[in-house]
Each structure stands twice: as C-alpha cells, then as structure tokens.
Design a protein around this nucleic acid. Structure first.
Lengths: 210, 210
DNA sequence: TAGATTGTTAATCGATTAACAATC
DNA sequence: TAGATTGTTAATCGATTAACAATC
C-alpha cells in the first residue's frame, strides 16, 4: 500500500470527526460521498478517492457504510492503538492541551495519552496540572527510555526548543508535536508536526486589512 | 495587485519570524534567498518569488535588505495596524491564547489585541483571566458594535460554535479564528481561519503506526 | 572583470475537478 | 428496469522546481 500523503490524512481525519458528530446527533447506516463533500465543502470525487485509498468500497445507489468508514479510518490512521507521550513545557498552552488529553472526548479517543509533564522552571516543578505532577527535565530521558515513549509534545519557548528536541531524539522519540514557533531540525526518521498558531494570523490580518 | 494566496501568506509569516529571530541573535543588514530557503527547508526560487510578490527587489550578489523585507511583509500582511478582537470561551485554551496575546512578544506584535472575554458558564463570569474580566454572552453583541470589532477568537465546544458564529456575524465580525473542532458556515465576506489542532494527530498517529 | 545572486520563463510535479461507464 | 451513486480515467489547475540570462 502506498504511503498516504499529508493532505489525505488530514481529510480522513475530517471525515472521521464529521461522522462522529453526525452519528451522535442521529444514527445513520450509510452516507454518500456527496453528503460528506457538502458538509466539508469539498469535491465528492475527492471523498471517493480518499475513501478508496483506505480500501473502502461504496455501494452503488446507497453510498458508504458509516461504521465501515469509521473503522477503516481508525485503523489506517492508527487511532486503535495507544500512544504514550510526554509534554514538555508546563505553561498555559501545555495546560490547555493536557486538559483536552485527559477526558474521553479529547485526544484519548485518538489513542493519545500524556503520561508525564516536564519543565525547567523551578516554581512549576512539583506542582500539578490536570492530575499530573510537573517533573524536572533531568528525569525526562530516563522516563522516555523506561516506557519506550515515541511521542513528545513541545510547548516551550522557541529559544530552547532545538536543544530539547536533540535530547528527545537521543532519548528515542520518533515524533514531535511542535507548538513552539520555530523550525526544528531532526533526523529523517523523526516526524515533526508543526502547529505554529501565529501563522494563522497572517491570513487573518491580511483579510482584515483589505 | 493580485490577491495573495494562503500558502504565500503563510510563508511570508515564516520569513518574517525567521528574520526577527535571526536579527535578535545578531544584527545583519542583508540576507540571500538561499539563506532563508535553507533555514526553512524550502526552495530559494520560492523565496524570491514570494518576496517579489510583496514588491521587494533584491540586489545582485548581495541579496535582500533585511529591514526592507521586514517592513514590506509587515505592511503587506497588515501587522502595522491594530486589530481589536474578542475571545469567546474562557476555558483552558482561551486562557492560553490570552496569555500569549498579552505581552509584547506575543500576538500584540502582529497587531492583535484581545479586548474582552465572553463565556456562558456562570461559574466563570466575573472571574479574571490575564487581566480581563469574563463577561456574559449577552454583552457580546453590544460591545462588538460599540467598538466596531471585526475579529473573534472561538475557543468554545463544537456544539455551540455555529450558533455563536451566527451571532458574531450579525454583530458585524468579519473574521473568525476558529479553535473549535468543527466546520463553520459563514457569508462569503467573512473569513474563517480554522486551527483544528487534532487534525495534526492524524499525521502523528499514522507515522507512529508505521 | 569575475562571480555570486537575482528575476523570470519554462518544465515538472502533484492535487483537484470533470466526465462517464460500471454498478447496485 | 430506471436512476442514483460509485470508481476510474482524463483534463485542468495551481504550486513547486529547474534553467539561465540579467544584474550588481
């Protein structure tokens, strides 16, 4: 099976969330590509292509089986597995993410579990955010190795994020969810997913300026 | 001048941040497209095209004047103007964004200022987050009209976000920075910028699954 | 001048959309 | 059967990259 591209993965996630939302409102057995396309404002052909890419087959005149679609996406994207992760940076944003990760409707339903929080700030170490005690950075590497953790979430200031990244990679981390507003350098087998929130401001400011 | 596309705006923002970061470390008068390209891992031609799109001209054998580049981007993207905005939803994420918006190194340097926070939750109303007092939703519309606010930041649960959006649009808002994990419907003159953080999880989970 | 860098045109690449036969 | 929907191939569109003459 060919490796799925980023845009496809993102659309699959949207389909998945849409179906979860729709079935929560009212149960439904099947859905057509046109219905999905309309709800998400994209082309129906695109939807069929994407669903085809995860091995799904629709039924002529009926559409796709909702349960099958959800199951296929869940398996293809890996939501059926459990990913333990560490959060680096116990600031406001870290706290917000941790709050989401905690309950079942949050990140947990995609398999993500934060098992520890680390920070350099002495005033934060020992404190609690969302059930977890903030630990000093020096305990980071041993814990990652001991629990074979492969994902780290970065919510620290830009200045220290590259140095931290190097340490995380050395410790064995294979994916970094980067909320620091900076570009990170990593080996080719490590994935960095950037969530540079302020990038969105460019579009907003430009629109409001017009 | 042709309207700039989203990808171009996002890259311009990256150039801007990169230059801010680099000049903070050590002052520099000029920079080449190759230097920018290498730092951000993109093609040098792309950089020259983008800078050309904001009216900049480089100098043969020298590159671009750093100050000129920053100034042109700042003006083109509208960072030199001031945008008053309201934050809807006084939860963890709202608090995190507000914390960023407060100080000078945060959103303020892009012209964004949050002037009020609203929430439906009675236990939150009257409380303070980052210097601002949380206000009840019914005060939202009058305030938006009175101060001619054109931007709203949405950090509320998905269930109520469409209804809130309709009210915001009626009140006169022209751009919505949407952190709710849901698709919003708005008139064509209103911009919605989605920051669906969990979309990033699709890429991460897929990578870790391999 | 020689050489590095720009600016621009052309070529490539990939993603989206259109068309339509196959299917239920 | 008739008609709606899929799955696939072809066409379009846009974005990225390559090539190279012009410039300082």
């Amino acid at each position: 099976m060919e490796r799925l591209r980023r845009v496809v993965l993102e659309r699959l996630m949207r389909y998945y969330r849409l179906l979860a939302e729709m079935t929560a409102k009212e149960p439904m057995a099947t859905i057509t590509s046109a219905q999905i396309a309309e709800a998400l404002d994209i082309d129906p052909t695109q939807v069929r292509k994407d669903l085809g890419a995860v091995g799904l087959q629709g039924m002529g005149r009926v559409g796709f089986d909702v349960c099958e679609v959800c199951r296929a996406i869940r398996i293809m994207l890996g939501f059926d597995q459990k990913y333990e992760s560490v959060l680096i940076g116990a600031g406001h944003l870290g706290g917000a993410l941790l709050a989401y990760s905690g309950f079942s409707a949050g990140f947990a339903r995609y398999g993500l579990h934060v098992v520890a929080v680390f920070d350099n700030d002495r005033s934060k170490i020992g404190g609690k955010i969302a059930e977890l005690t903030v630990k000093p950075m020096k305990e980071m590497k041993p814990l990652i190795k001991r629990r074979s953790i492969r994902l780290a979430i970065l919510t620290i200031p830009a200045q220290v994020s590259q140095e931290l990244t190097d340490r995380l990679v050395t410790a064995g981390v294979k994916a970094i969810w980067n909320f620091s507003p900076t570009q990170l350098t990593v080996p080719p087998d490590v994935l960095v997913r950037n969530e540079h929130i302020s990038v969105g401001l460019s579009e907003i400011a430009y629109h409001l300026k017009q």
